[in-house]
């Protein structure tokens, strides 16, 4: 109940943002919503089940390209976004069937390779996808302000759906099963948990919203190309945000998204050539000093027991 109230209140406050009429702020808020979606998506498989997936960029890019290609063929906007999500889910089921029996490092790298394979496919099919030249999307007839507001609300709606889904899953049999798998997969199997099935469903959840986010992103920026939407950083940032906020928690990804975007905006813009290194510094500091996320700080202050003790020697 508490989680729902926080979610509704937070979304409600954000939804008032367009009243300020500041397009720059709106662009940032749209980015935050997108980051929340990507981080929470990763959290389903990486945080709950403990499978370090690097496939997020694959889902994102696949959603972007599916929607862009369909729009080029005259499919209406919202239908094409839905198709982007659907394509990502189907892809996750196919890939998941092949790589979810791998564990640890093997799974991490295999999921990374699937992104490269998708990128190669797009690169080698210029007739459909524009290949390395990229793809233009239909321009929408709107004023700048309308455009900003429309995409802000679209992204916010998907972020809300994604968060709602996370709240439901955390409380559900699926969430419980994924936590069992994260703790000890063999023991979970012996207890009757159909690990393979639950992992595949978890992987599907991590795909659907990322795919839709990619689709909306494509429409938002009008132009996509493989290095942009299949960027490895799209796979890495969600992981960083979740680590920032706290692994396997409901609101950790949101906190992580705000922190990361704030950092990107105010620090990296100043030092453009070393922005990758700046992200590197955050990651290293995070792993070494805050392995349980910033939420653990407040929890420690309140004197509550830390759940994830023993991660550090």
């Amino acid at each position: 109940m508490k989680n729902w109230l926080i979610l509704l209140a937070g979304t409600g406050v954000l939804a008032l943002l367009p009243l300020l009429g500041d397009n720059y702020l709106m662009r940032l808020a749209t980015m935050v919503a997108m980051y929340v979606i990507l981080a929470q998506s990763w959290n389903f498989i990486g945080g709950l089940a403990g499978y370090p997936s690097f496939a997020t960029a694959g889902f994102f890019g696949l959603g972007a390209y599916t929607s862009a290609v369909l729009q080029g063929m005259g499919v209406p906007l919202f239908a094409s976004w839905g198709a982007g999500g659907l394509a990502a889910v189907i892809f996750s089921a196919l890939v998941g069937g092949a790589i979810l029996h791998l564990r640890g490092h093997y799974f991490a790298i295999a999921s990374l390779v699937t992104v490269e394979v998708l990128r190669e496919i797009v690169n080698t099919t210029p007739d459909i996808t524009g290949g390395g030249m990229g793809l233009n999307l239909p321009i929408m007839r709107m004023t700048v302000a309308e455009h900003a507001t429309f995409f802000f609300y679209s992204m916010l709606a998907v972020a809300f759906a994604c968060m709602a889904c996370a709240i439901v899953v955390h409380k559900s049999k699926l969430g419980f099963a994924l936590r069992c798998i994260q703790q000890n997969e063999d023991a979970a199997n012996i207890l009757g948990v159909n690990a393979y099935l639950y992992k595949t469903i978890g992987f599907g959840f991590s795909a659907v919203f990322a795919g839709i986010a990619g689709a909306i992103y494509a429409s938002w920026v009008h132009y996509i190309e493989p290095p942009d939407v299949f960027d490895v950083l799209i796979s890495v940032k969600p992981l960083v945000m979740v680590l920032l906020g706290g692994l396997g928690t409901i609101f950790g990804p949101v906190i992580g998204a705000f922190i990361l975007l704030t950092f990107e905006e105010f620090v990296w813009r100043t030092f453009l050539t070393v922005h990758a290194a700046a992200l590197g510094v955050i990651i290293v500091a995070l792993v070494l000093f805050l392995p349980n996320g910033v939420l653990s700080l407040t929890r420690e202050k309140l004197g509550l027991r830390r759940r994830a003790a023993g991660e550090k020697r």
Partner: peptide
Amino acid sequence: VQPFPKMTVLENVAAGALFAGQSPSM
């Protein structure tokens, strides 16, 4: 022994009841 180390004792046992036993709900 193969417990789920970070879950509570109750959750450990509930997992067995939920996934293999006859308990329909959490």
